[in-house]
Simulated scan of single mutants.
Amino acid sequence: MELTRFLTFLAAVLPLAYGAPSPVANSLHPEILAAMKRDLGLNAKQATARVAREVAAAGVIEQLRSSTGDAFAGAWVAEDGTTINVAVTNQALAADVTNAGATPVIVANSLSKLEEAKKALDNQDISQAKTLATSSTDSGIAAYYVDVAANKLVLEALPGSTAHAEALAAQVGLVASEFEVKTVETMPTTFASVRGGDAYLINRAARCSVGFGVTTGFVSAGHCGTVGSTATTSSGASLGTFSGSVFPGNADMSYIRTVSGTTFTGTINGYGSGDLPVSGSTASAVGSSICRSGSTSGVHCGTVRALSATVNYAEGRVTGLTQTSVCAEPGDSGGSYYTGAQAQGVTSGGSGDCTVGGTTFFQPVNEILSTYGLTLVRS
């Protein structure tokens, strides 16, 4: 089976200017347009316009992050994709935000304050002592992250751990108005499986999805394999060996160095709708539309919910993941997330499935590239 069937990339090139899409933007691949229509209720014109605006929004947000300094409290794109909201703690900076093309939101907590509290949690043992009143099946802290729109640190906990989550927030110096505990029914899991399919196999057994091609191989999720593990096609042809892998800990990422003679074209299997190109890796803001492609469930879309989330898998805690509303299923692990033509990351894990919907997390691709000194293959 050709390697191009395993590479997961993005849709067509979009304009950089914030505003109406150029004719180039209208070349979003039909498979992606269909997924955005199904999952976000957008027609082709709305989808291409939204993606164009979101790509440009990233530049506006970075500009304001720098100019507002310690007063910066986060940013997000409105649900309809038409407005960039930038939160600041200083009313005097509202005009600067407006002049940059964004909508100012005045809040109490800076992003740095909430992120410092989250980092303090990352350095703590957050396991909960078991009691007769708290069984192992209904207790656990699933994830925690900064919700920039709410201007709070959010802790997701099973029903038996809500009080424990509140205590943890207090331990890192947060008062009631600075955090929120959300109850979830299940703990997140990774999406690897041992079933065969149109993907790559690790040690000829477990199955994952290729994320993005780099000039010397491809990247995927760290939980898919450890350093030295082999990667093959489902038919047994050698792809290469895991040269780097992190999981759990501060990432869920891996780099597979491929065998000599392997060629990466910058395209992927479009699941019956042709190949999809990639043009860059500009990170999307909270609220942006985002799509995911994986070997089990194909292409699905949703929105970015939170950045730099910490997730607690059975194997251990992982920091620095991005939370989304996109569904995924076993075998999708390692597959690509993208906004328009911009690579975002590789599938880590989550909960739910593509029948009932779910919450998923991905490892940002730019961290993988910088960690291993890799160059993304572009069309």
Rank of each mutant, 00 (worst) to 15 (best):
A167H: 03
T189P: 08
M187V: 11
V154E: 03
M187H: 08
T186K: 14
E166T: 15
S193M: 05
H164N: 09
A165C: 01
N151A: 06
L153F: 09
A167F: 04
E185M: 14
V172T: 09
L168D: 10
A150L: 10
G173N: 05
N151M: 08
H164E: 03
G173P: 12
T183V: 12
L153I: 01
T186E: 13
A176D: 15
A149G: 02
A169E: 01
T189S: 12
E185L: 15
K182A: 10
T183Y: 07
V172I: 11
K182M: 07
V181S: 08
A149R: 11
A150I: 00
K152N: 05
A163G: 13
L168C: 04
A149H: 08
A150E: 04
V172F: 10
E166Q: 15
A157M: 06
A169Y: 00
E185Y: 14
A169C: 06
T189Q: 08
A157P: 02
P159H: 08
E178Q: 15
M187A: 14
G173F: 01
L168T: 05
A169Q: 05
A192K: 11
P188M: 02
T190H: 07
T162N: 02
A163W: 04
V172Y: 12
A169N: 01
A192W: 11
L174A: 09
L155S: 02
A167V: 12
A157D: 00
A176V: 14
L174S: 04
L174G: 09
E156C: 05
E178T: 04
A149S: 14
T186W: 07
L168S: 02
V194M: 03
T162H: 09
N151K: 04
E180C: 07
L158E: 10
E166W: 01
A149K: 13
E178W: 11
T186N: 13
F191M: 09
